[in-house]
């Protein structure tokens, strides 16, 4: 656990000194909203469409993040340095997932207000924000877990920019399905409606299964 904190602190320090990923992901998501506006030719969206745009934008921003998550470690010897230390190797995977989670939260602080201003039709109240935070938190867990695993898988391949998104995208389809379905009543035109629990349940199950799986498998991606 102490190792995880050490690694997490290093990641956040790196991002604070040379902000790279968070601004890029935030900028990318705002630009994506603009693109959606013109592609769909809509000023105001709500319901299904709003949920879809929000989730897909978050997904693409995450893909951007997954591709860069391990680059500093790969290119500057961080993997070897870590492997030389007498610590539990799974800590790296846990720290990377937490890092991505933290980055996603920061990105959402920009992305969600931008969405509300640029595209979202209905008014925003506390109830909506509360439900949105709940769903986004569960989505972030799934994205972070898959991101930490697939990122580590892709970084050792020759075509890492291709392999990462190619593997991550289908793996994350269930997250998109459940999150979009859970959010569409929340973002409804007549104010936030009731969420259907079954989508959150499956999303939670997804987070749990892949969380455990990634935890069990991560070590194999480090050994040489």
């Amino acid at each position: 656990m102490r190792t995880v904190l050490t690694l997490l602190r290093k990641e956040l320090l790196l991002e604070r000194k040379v902000p790279q990923l968070v601004p890029a992901m935030a900028l990318f998501s705002v630009t994506t909203f603009v693109v959606f506006h013109f592609a769909l030719q809509q000023r105001d969206v709500d319901g299904d469409l709003a949920a879809g745009i929000l989730v897909v934008t978050l997904l693409f921003a995450t893909i951007l993040g997954i591709n860069r998550l391990y680059v500093a470690d790969r290119e500057e010897g961080g993997f070897d340095a870590f492997l030389l230390a007498p610590v539990d190797r799974t800590a790296l995977g846990v720290a990377k997932a937490l890092t991505l989670f933290a980055f996603l939260v920061l990105v959402e602080f920009v992305m969600v207000p931008a969405f509300a201003i640029l595209l979202f039709g209905p008014g925003v109240g506390w109830e909506l924000v509360g439900k949105l935070v709940l769903v986004l938190a569960m989505v972030n867990v799934g994205l972070s877990v898959i991101g930490a695993l697939v990122g580590a898988l892709a970084i050792q391949t020759r075509a890492r920019d291709l392999i990462g998104p190619l593997v991550a995208l289908p793996l994350l389809v269930p997250v998109v399905i459940t999150a979009a379905r859970a959010l569409s009543p929340v973002l409804g035109a007549d104010g936030p409606g009731a969420m259907e629990g079954q989508f959150l349940a499956v999303l939670g199950l997804y987070d749990l299964v892949f969380g455990l799986l990634a935890y069990a498998l991560f070590d194999f991606l480090l050994e040489d």
Binding site: K10, L14, K17, A72, E76, G77, A81
Partner: peptide, 10 residues
Amino acid sequence: GHDPLLYRDL
């Protein structure tokens, strides 16, 4: 080794 195993931005 040849690689310093250090983060360049730190």
